[in-house]
Amino acid sequence: MLRFLLNRLAKAAVVLGVVVVLNFLLIHAAPGDPATVMAGEAGAADQMFVDQLRKQFGLDRPLHVQLGTYVSHILQGDLGFSFRQQRPVADLLLDRLPATVVLTLSAFTLALAGGIALGLLAAVNVGKWADSAITVVALLSYATPIYWVGLMLVLVFSVNLGWLPAFGYESIGAGHAGLARMGDIARHMILPVATLGLFYMAVYTRMTRASALEVSSMDFVKTARAKGQSEWRIVTRHVLRNAILPVLTVAGVQAGQLIGGSILVETVFAWPGLGRLTFDAVLQRDYQVLLGVFFVTSVLVVAFNIVTDVLYVLVDPRVEIAK
Protein backbone atom coordinates (compact mmCIF):
# COMPACT_ATOMS: atom_id res chain seq x y z
CA MET A 1 0.00 0.00 0.00
CA LEU A 2 2.82 2.36 0.89
CA ARG A 3 4.56 1.75 -2.42
CA PHE A 4 1.30 2.23 -4.24
CA LEU A 5 0.76 5.56 -2.52
CA LEU A 6 4.32 6.71 -3.20
CA ASN A 7 3.84 5.82 -6.84
CA ARG A 8 0.66 7.91 -7.00
CA LEU A 9 2.34 10.82 -5.24
CA ALA A 10 5.18 10.79 -7.75
CA LYS A 11 2.64 10.90 -10.57
CA ALA A 12 0.88 13.79 -8.83
CA ALA A 13 4.15 15.69 -8.58
CA VAL A 14 4.69 15.33 -12.33
CA VAL A 15 1.21 16.69 -13.08
CA LEU A 16 1.77 19.69 -10.82
CA GLY A 17 5.20 20.30 -12.30
CA VAL A 18 3.73 20.48 -15.78
CA VAL A 19 0.95 22.78 -14.58
CA VAL A 20 3.56 25.14 -13.13
CA VAL A 21 5.48 25.20 -16.40
CA LEU A 22 2.25 25.72 -18.33
CA ASN A 23 1.38 28.63 -16.04
CA PHE A 24 4.78 30.16 -16.59
CA LEU A 25 4.47 29.83 -20.35
CA LEU A 26 0.98 31.31 -20.33
CA ILE A 27 2.20 34.43 -18.55
CA HIS A 28 4.89 34.84 -21.14
CA ALA A 29 2.68 34.02 -24.09
CA ALA A 30 0.15 36.66 -23.09
CA PRO A 31 -0.02 39.71 -25.33
CA GLY A 32 2.36 42.26 -23.83
CA ASP A 33 5.04 41.08 -21.40
CA PRO A 34 4.15 40.41 -17.77
CA ALA A 35 5.61 43.70 -16.60
CA THR A 36 3.34 45.70 -18.88
CA VAL A 37 0.43 43.56 -17.78
CA MET A 38 1.26 44.01 -14.11
CA ALA A 39 1.78 47.71 -14.57
CA GLY A 40 -1.58 47.85 -16.24
CA GLU A 41 -3.12 45.97 -13.33
CA ALA A 42 -1.47 48.33 -10.89
CA GLY A 43 -2.94 51.19 -12.85
CA ALA A 44 0.36 52.87 -13.75
CA ALA A 45 1.58 52.30 -17.28
CA ASP A 46 4.55 54.62 -17.49
CA GLN A 47 7.82 53.27 -18.79
CA MET A 48 9.81 53.88 -15.60
CA PHE A 49 7.47 51.76 -13.54
CA VAL A 50 7.47 49.01 -16.17
CA ASP A 51 11.27 48.91 -16.23
CA GLN A 52 11.40 48.82 -12.48
CA LEU A 53 8.97 45.92 -12.44
CA ARG A 54 11.03 44.13 -15.06
CA LYS A 55 14.06 44.35 -12.90
CA GLN A 56 12.21 43.49 -9.74
CA PHE A 57 10.79 40.28 -11.22
CA GLY A 58 13.96 39.40 -13.14
CA LEU A 59 12.17 39.69 -16.46
CA ASP A 60 15.35 40.91 -18.10
CA ARG A 61 17.06 37.58 -17.47
CA PRO A 62 17.00 34.48 -19.76
CA LEU A 63 13.76 32.48 -19.81
CA HIS A 64 15.07 29.34 -18.09
CA VAL A 65 16.48 31.39 -15.22
CA GLN A 66 13.10 33.04 -14.87
CA LEU A 67 11.44 29.66 -14.82
CA GLY A 68 13.84 28.58 -12.05
CA THR A 69 12.94 31.64 -10.02
CA TYR A 70 9.24 31.06 -10.65
CA VAL A 71 9.42 27.44 -9.52
CA SER A 72 11.38 28.31 -6.40
CA HIS A 73 8.80 30.94 -5.54
CA ILE A 74 6.00 28.43 -5.89
CA LEU A 75 7.85 25.93 -3.77
CA GLN A 76 7.98 28.58 -1.08
CA GLY A 77 4.24 29.08 -1.39
CA ASP A 78 4.54 32.36 -3.29
CA LEU A 79 2.00 32.36 -6.10
CA GLY A 80 2.46 35.99 -7.04
CA PHE A 81 0.76 39.24 -6.05
CA SER A 82 -2.61 40.59 -7.05
CA PHE A 83 -2.31 44.29 -7.65
CA ARG A 84 -6.04 44.60 -8.08
CA GLN A 85 -6.75 43.26 -4.64
CA GLN A 86 -3.44 44.35 -3.16
CA ARG A 87 -2.87 40.95 -1.56
CA PRO A 88 -0.64 37.94 -2.24
CA VAL A 89 -2.43 35.45 -4.48
CA ALA A 90 -1.68 32.59 -2.09
CA ASP A 91 -3.56 34.36 0.71
CA LEU A 92 -6.55 35.01 -1.52
CA LEU A 93 -6.64 31.36 -2.57
CA LEU A 94 -6.25 30.00 0.95
CA ASP A 95 -9.16 32.13 2.10
CA ARG A 96 -11.42 30.68 -0.54
CA LEU A 97 -10.20 27.09 -0.69
CA PRO A 98 -12.22 25.58 2.20
CA ALA A 99 -15.58 26.61 0.75
CA THR A 100 -14.69 25.07 -2.61
CA VAL A 101 -13.43 21.87 -1.03
CA VAL A 102 -16.63 21.50 0.98
CA LEU A 103 -18.75 22.11 -2.11
CA THR A 104 -16.89 19.85 -4.52
CA LEU A 105 -16.36 17.02 -2.08
CA SER A 106 -20.06 16.95 -1.16
CA ALA A 107 -21.12 17.12 -4.78
CA PHE A 108 -18.62 14.40 -5.74
CA THR A 109 -19.88 12.10 -3.00
CA LEU A 110 -23.49 12.74 -3.93
CA ALA A 111 -22.81 12.21 -7.63
CA LEU A 112 -20.82 9.03 -7.16
CA ALA A 113 -23.13 7.39 -4.61
CA GLY A 114 -26.30 8.49 -6.39
CA GLY A 115 -24.95 7.70 -9.83
CA ILE A 116 -23.88 4.19 -8.91
CA ALA A 117 -27.17 3.47 -7.16
CA LEU A 118 -29.33 4.81 -10.00
CA GLY A 119 -27.21 3.22 -12.71
CA LEU A 120 -27.46 -0.14 -11.01
CA LEU A 121 -31.20 0.26 -10.51
CA ALA A 122 -31.60 1.02 -14.21
CA ALA A 123 -29.45 -1.94 -15.25
CA VAL A 124 -31.35 -4.36 -13.04
CA ASN A 125 -34.65 -3.16 -14.49
CA VAL A 126 -33.36 -2.86 -18.02
CA GLY A 127 -36.18 -2.23 -20.48
CA LYS A 128 -38.74 -1.53 -17.75
CA TRP A 129 -40.18 1.85 -16.76
CA ALA A 130 -37.67 2.49 -13.98
CA ASP A 131 -34.86 2.11 -16.47
CA SER A 132 -36.55 4.38 -19.00
CA ALA A 133 -37.25 7.04 -16.39
CA ILE A 134 -33.70 7.02 -15.06
CA THR A 135 -32.26 7.05 -18.57
CA VAL A 136 -34.37 10.01 -19.67
CA VAL A 137 -33.62 12.05 -16.54
CA ALA A 138 -29.91 11.30 -16.88
CA LEU A 139 -29.97 12.26 -20.54
CA LEU A 140 -31.66 15.57 -19.72
CA SER A 141 -29.36 16.39 -16.80
CA TYR A 142 -26.37 15.55 -18.93
CA ALA A 143 -27.47 18.03 -21.58
CA THR A 144 -28.27 20.97 -19.31
CA PRO A 145 -25.80 23.79 -18.73
CA ILE A 146 -24.86 23.56 -15.09
CA TYR A 147 -25.31 27.28 -14.34
CA TRP A 148 -28.77 27.27 -15.88
CA VAL A 149 -29.84 24.36 -13.67
CA GLY A 150 -28.64 26.42 -10.72
CA LEU A 151 -30.67 29.43 -11.81
CA MET A 152 -33.79 27.36 -12.42
CA LEU A 153 -33.47 25.70 -9.01
CA VAL A 154 -33.19 29.14 -7.43
CA LEU A 155 -36.26 30.23 -9.35
CA VAL A 156 -38.29 27.30 -8.08
CA PHE A 157 -37.02 26.66 -4.57
CA SER A 158 -36.01 30.14 -3.47
CA VAL A 159 -38.02 32.65 -5.47
CA ASN A 160 -41.31 30.77 -5.88
CA LEU A 161 -41.42 28.35 -2.98
CA GLY A 162 -39.11 30.23 -0.63
CA TRP A 163 -37.83 27.01 0.91
CA LEU A 164 -34.13 27.46 0.56
CA PRO A 165 -31.69 30.37 0.54
CA ALA A 166 -30.69 31.45 -2.96
CA PHE A 167 -27.09 32.43 -2.33
CA GLY A 168 -24.23 32.66 0.11
CA TYR A 169 -22.54 30.33 2.54
CA GLU A 170 -24.52 31.28 5.62
CA SER A 171 -27.08 33.86 6.67
CA ILE A 172 -25.23 37.06 7.31
CA GLY A 173 -25.94 38.75 10.59
CA ALA A 174 -28.13 35.94 11.86
CA GLY A 175 -25.60 35.33 14.60
CA HIS A 176 -25.92 31.56 14.53
CA ALA A 177 -23.36 29.60 16.45
CA GLY A 178 -22.49 25.93 16.94
CA LEU A 179 -25.08 23.47 15.76
CA ALA A 180 -27.42 26.18 14.52
CA ARG A 181 -24.66 27.57 12.33
CA MET A 182 -23.95 24.13 10.93
CA GLY A 183 -27.61 23.71 10.07
CA ASP A 184 -27.65 27.13 8.47
CA ILE A 185 -24.63 26.28 6.32
CA ALA A 186 -26.19 22.96 5.40
CA ARG A 187 -29.33 24.70 4.21
CA HIS A 188 -27.23 27.01 2.08
CA MET A 189 -25.37 24.04 0.65
CA ILE A 190 -28.37 22.11 -0.62
CA LEU A 191 -28.92 23.97 -3.88
CA PRO A 192 -25.27 24.39 -4.93
CA VAL A 193 -24.42 20.78 -4.12
CA ALA A 194 -27.51 19.55 -5.92
CA THR A 195 -26.69 21.67 -8.97
CA LEU A 196 -23.10 20.52 -9.22
CA GLY A 197 -23.88 16.96 -8.19
CA LEU A 198 -26.80 16.47 -10.58
CA PHE A 199 -24.76 16.81 -13.75
CA TYR A 200 -22.08 14.38 -12.62
CA MET A 201 -24.64 12.05 -11.15
CA ALA A 202 -26.04 11.82 -14.67
CA VAL A 203 -22.57 11.03 -16.00
CA TYR A 204 -21.96 8.27 -13.44
CA THR A 205 -25.48 6.89 -13.78
CA ARG A 206 -25.04 6.36 -17.50
CA MET A 207 -21.65 4.84 -16.98
CA THR A 208 -22.72 2.50 -14.19
CA ARG A 209 -25.71 1.34 -16.19
CA ALA A 210 -23.59 0.51 -19.22
CA SER A 211 -20.92 -1.12 -17.12
CA ALA A 212 -23.40 -3.17 -15.09
CA LEU A 213 -25.10 -4.40 -18.25
CA GLU A 214 -21.76 -5.47 -19.63
CA VAL A 215 -20.78 -7.26 -16.44
CA SER A 216 -24.19 -8.97 -16.36
CA SER A 217 -23.44 -10.65 -19.66
CA MET A 218 -20.14 -12.07 -18.42
CA ASP A 219 -19.55 -15.75 -17.82
CA PHE A 220 -19.09 -15.55 -14.08
CA VAL A 221 -22.58 -14.12 -13.69
CA LYS A 222 -23.83 -17.19 -15.53
CA THR A 223 -21.83 -19.30 -13.09
CA ALA A 224 -23.50 -17.50 -10.19
CA ARG A 225 -26.91 -18.11 -11.72
CA ALA A 226 -26.05 -21.78 -12.22
CA LYS A 227 -25.42 -22.00 -8.47
CA GLY A 228 -29.08 -21.16 -7.94
CA GLN A 229 -28.54 -17.68 -6.52
CA SER A 230 -31.32 -15.14 -6.48
CA GLU A 231 -31.07 -12.20 -8.86
CA TRP A 232 -30.71 -9.78 -5.96
CA ARG A 233 -27.77 -11.70 -4.57
CA ILE A 234 -26.15 -11.88 -7.99
CA VAL A 235 -26.40 -8.12 -8.39
CA THR A 236 -25.08 -7.25 -4.95
CA ARG A 237 -22.37 -9.88 -4.71
CA HIS A 238 -21.14 -10.24 -8.28
CA VAL A 239 -22.25 -7.42 -10.57
CA LEU A 240 -21.87 -4.38 -8.31
CA ARG A 241 -18.18 -4.53 -7.48
CA ASN A 242 -17.13 -5.44 -10.97
CA ALA A 243 -19.30 -2.70 -12.46
CA ILE A 244 -17.94 0.00 -10.17
CA LEU A 245 -14.33 -0.32 -11.27
CA PRO A 246 -14.56 1.48 -14.63
CA VAL A 247 -16.80 4.13 -13.05
CA LEU A 248 -14.18 4.87 -10.42
CA THR A 249 -11.49 5.17 -13.05
CA VAL A 250 -13.52 7.70 -15.01
CA ALA A 251 -14.62 9.55 -11.89
CA GLY A 252 -10.96 10.06 -11.04
CA VAL A 253 -10.16 11.35 -14.50
CA GLN A 254 -13.18 13.64 -14.51
CA ALA A 255 -12.57 15.16 -11.08
CA GLY A 256 -10.97 18.09 -12.89
CA GLN A 257 -14.16 18.79 -14.76
CA LEU A 258 -16.21 18.65 -11.59
CA ILE A 259 -13.91 21.17 -9.95
CA GLY A 260 -14.13 23.34 -13.06
CA GLY A 261 -17.92 23.10 -12.84
CA SER A 262 -17.79 24.41 -9.29
CA ILE A 263 -16.61 27.76 -10.67
CA LEU A 264 -19.91 28.18 -12.48
CA VAL A 265 -21.97 26.96 -9.56
CA GLU A 266 -20.19 29.25 -7.13
CA THR A 267 -20.78 32.16 -9.47
CA VAL A 268 -24.51 31.44 -9.56
CA PHE A 269 -24.87 30.97 -5.81
CA ALA A 270 -22.35 33.59 -4.71
CA TRP A 271 -20.58 30.81 -2.87
CA PRO A 272 -17.45 32.29 -1.32
CA GLY A 273 -15.02 29.83 -2.91
CA LEU A 274 -12.48 29.82 -5.70
CA GLY A 275 -15.25 30.14 -8.26
CA ARG A 276 -16.29 33.57 -7.10
CA LEU A 277 -12.66 34.58 -6.98
CA THR A 278 -12.28 33.40 -10.56
CA PHE A 279 -15.35 35.27 -11.73
CA ASP A 280 -14.11 38.48 -10.16
CA ALA A 281 -10.63 37.92 -11.57
CA VAL A 282 -12.09 37.39 -15.03
CA LEU A 283 -14.03 40.66 -14.77
CA GLN A 284 -10.92 42.50 -13.66
CA ARG A 285 -8.53 40.59 -15.96
CA ASP A 286 -6.49 39.69 -12.89
CA TYR A 287 -4.17 37.11 -14.50
CA GLN A 288 -2.09 36.35 -11.42
CA VAL A 289 -5.20 35.22 -9.61
CA LEU A 290 -6.43 33.20 -12.57
CA LEU A 291 -3.15 31.34 -12.86
CA GLY A 292 -3.20 30.79 -9.12
CA VAL A 293 -6.68 29.31 -9.39
CA PHE A 294 -5.49 27.01 -12.16
CA PHE A 295 -2.63 25.83 -9.96
CA VAL A 296 -4.75 25.29 -6.87
CA THR A 297 -7.53 23.49 -8.74
CA SER A 298 -4.87 21.23 -10.25
CA VAL A 299 -3.69 20.41 -6.74
CA LEU A 300 -7.30 19.62 -5.83
CA VAL A 301 -7.71 17.38 -8.87
CA VAL A 302 -4.58 15.48 -7.99
CA ALA A 303 -5.90 15.01 -4.46
CA PHE A 304 -9.23 13.70 -5.84
CA ASN A 305 -7.30 11.32 -8.07
CA ILE A 306 -5.48 9.85 -5.12
CA VAL A 307 -8.79 9.41 -3.33
CA THR A 308 -10.33 7.52 -6.28
CA ASP A 309 -7.18 5.43 -6.64
CA VAL A 310 -7.42 4.36 -3.03
CA LEU A 311 -11.11 3.57 -3.53
CA TYR A 312 -10.11 1.47 -6.52
CA VAL A 313 -7.66 -0.54 -4.47
CA LEU A 314 -10.32 -1.11 -1.85
CA VAL A 315 -12.71 -2.52 -4.44
CA ASP A 316 -10.20 -4.49 -6.52
CA PRO A 317 -8.12 -6.84 -4.38
CA ARG A 318 -5.86 -7.75 -7.27
CA VAL A 319 -4.09 -4.41 -7.48
CA GLU A 320 -2.49 -4.50 -4.10
CA ILE A 321 -1.87 -8.21 -3.91
CA ALA A 322 -0.11 -8.24 -7.25
CA LYS A 323 2.47 -5.71 -6.08
Partner: peptide, 9 residues
Amino acid sequence: LFQTIPNFV
Protein backbone atom coordinates in the same frame (compact mmCIF):
# COMPACT_ATOMS: atom_id res chain seq x y z
CA LEU B 1 -2.04 15.08 -18.25
CA PHE B 2 -4.40 17.02 -20.45
CA GLN B 3 -7.23 14.85 -19.23
CA THR B 4 -6.37 15.34 -15.59
CA ILE B 5 -5.91 19.09 -15.37
CA PRO B 6 -9.09 21.04 -14.70
CA ASN B 7 -10.32 21.64 -18.26
CA PHE B 8 -12.69 24.45 -17.72
CA VAL B 9 -10.27 26.44 -15.57
